[in-house]
Amino acid sequence: MQPRLVAKLHRRVCFVQTDDAVLAEELLARKKLAAEIVGRLSDRVLLVRPGRVDAVIDELLKMGHAPQVVGRAGS
């Protein structure tokens, strides 16, 4: 049997992942969106303030993006 890997879980994390780093920069340049971002895990992964994911989705839609929402009913 393969040895189990040591790991830690982070639950209920809300984040945005972009196709490329430039797009992440573009999102961060949007003032309203940047206010909802609490950190950057990598150049393409932005951590969203807990409980503010709907505001982020709304703002993305206003920017003309079509965010794919993963992990909700229907998706």
Binding site: Q17, D19, Q68, R72
Partner: peptide, 26 residues
């Protein structure tokens, strides 16, 4: 296609490994 560019995870479980090698193994 446009939908593929930004992905939002409203409530995901992230798994943090001790090293990059462990993540690759996982």
């Amino acid at each position: 296609d446009k939908r593929e560019r930004v992905t939002v995870y409203p409530s995901a479980t992230l798994v943090e490994f001790l090293s990059p090698a462990d993540l690759d193994l996982a």
